Computed example of a mutant assay.
Amino acid sequence: MGASFEPLKSELSKINWEQIGLNFLQHFLQIILITIFFWILNRIGKRLIRNSFERRDLIENQSARSQTVFAVTNNIFKYSVMFFYIYSILSNLGVPVGTLIAGAGILSVAIGLGTQGIVSDIINGLTILIEGQLRVGDSVTIQAIDGTVVSIGLRTIELRAVDGTLHYLPNRSVSTVSNHSRGTQNVSIFLHISDAFEIDHAKDLLRDQLSNLKSASDKIKSTPVIQAPVIEKNRGYLGIQISFKVKPGYQAAMQTMVLDRCLKILSKENLKIEN
């Protein structure tokens, strides 16, 4: 690491810092004008990007893919403006930016400034976007965190957890992504019937009453499959297994709705369920 700093140190030692200080005072007005110019450029650019998407009704339609592309385009524009702004300021002050990069080498500068993590974030972020692993609005599990993707940037992914917490995950830390928003999702409910001899009766009731479940909500995508008697794997209970498919992102809501309906059906027949 020390050797990689040597070319950079050599170039920095050649810089006349006193002259740069004088340049700052002499070009103070120019620096202010450059700042104003890039601020206006940033505002206009972002507005043009938004208008371009809105003309195609991409944002209003809440398309997950469109929101993702919109967010990434904004990020690329923001970092590009930031780079050219810093370059312009340093050049105006007389800092030989080009000479520094050429003398120290891009790799040495990157290592010296500790930007290898940023580069890794950007590369991994582009990989995620190109492969379409995530989209804004997807329900996912990343690093054991369950939540909804709020934003996908070149450096981080913003993930809103179930409890409302907003997590910022560096792209380089994303190794495994479990996306629950691709294709229909399976939902399973196990009912532990108190009296094992009533399992067949309970199964017939549920099969009859839940046969029209698919038409009850457009979020449910299949007729429930009811199996009984089955043994619950974790605790070895004997009961009924209900399985059905739902629209991505509605697993918890539909599971609660169907479970509530099952409890009401069985309670009318005085069939007890144990936890």
Rank of each mutant, 00 (worst) to 15 (best):
S267M: 01
I86D: 02
Q19S: 15
G105T: 04
L126T: 02
I101G: 09
L259Y: 01
F24H: 10
N23E: 08
Q241H: 13
Q209N: 11
S4D: 07
S211Q: 15
F70M: 09
P96D: 04
A102P: 00
Q255I: 00
N270V: 03
N171G: 00
M1E: 10
S63A: 06
K9N: 14
S66R: 11
S215L: 13
Q143V: 04
V81F: 13
P7N: 05
I142G: 01
H167Q: 12
G132I: 03
N51H: 13
N92W: 00
T256N: 06
Y87W: 14
S88V: 03
F83E: 05
I101K: 02
G125E: 02
E11R: 14
I36T: 10
L48G: 03
G125F: 02
L166S: 07
E131M: 10
K14D: 07
L29G: 04
I31K: 10
S181M: 06
Q185K: 10
V230G: 01
K272W: 03
S222I: 02
W17L: 13
A3E: 12
F70C: 07
I15G: 07
E232Q: 12
Q26G: 14
S151K: 12
T223N: 14
G103V: 01
Y168C: 01
N124G: 02
L100V: 08
E60Q: 07
T165H: 09
I273Y: 08
D57I: 08
V258H: 09
I226A: 12
N75S: 08
T165G: 09
I59A: 01
S194C: 06
S181D: 09
G132T: 04
R56H: 05
L8Y: 15
Q133H: 11
Y237L: 13
V174N: 06
F53G: 03
D163T: 05
L263P: 01
G98E: 13
F84Y: 12
A253P: 00
N234V: 09
P229K: 08
L154E: 09
R43T: 09
A64T: 03
F70P: 00
V150C: 06
S88M: 08
I76M: 11
L213K: 09
G117M: 06
N234M: 12
R160W: 03
L58H: 05
Q26S: 14
A144I: 01
Q26K: 15
G105Q: 03
P170A: 14
T156V: 10
S178A: 06
Y250Q: 02
E60I: 06
G21L: 08
S267H: 02
Q185H: 03
L129M: 14
K245Q: 13
V149G: 01
S188L: 06
N61K: 15
G153C: 05
L33F: 10
E274Q: 12
I49T: 11
F190H: 11
I189P: 10
S178D: 07
S80T: 11
I122G: 04
A144Y: 04
E54L: 11
V225P: 00
S217W: 05
E18R: 10
F70Y: 15
Q133L: 09
I122F: 10
I130H: 07
Q133Y: 05
K264R: 13
K46W: 03
L210F: 04
S211N: 14
Q255P: 00
I40M: 14
I199K: 08
Q255G: 15
L58A: 14
G117A: 08
S80M: 15
L169T: 02
E54R: 12
S188E: 12
I189E: 07
L210W: 04
Q143S: 12
F37M: 14
P96G: 09
K219N: 15
R43G: 13
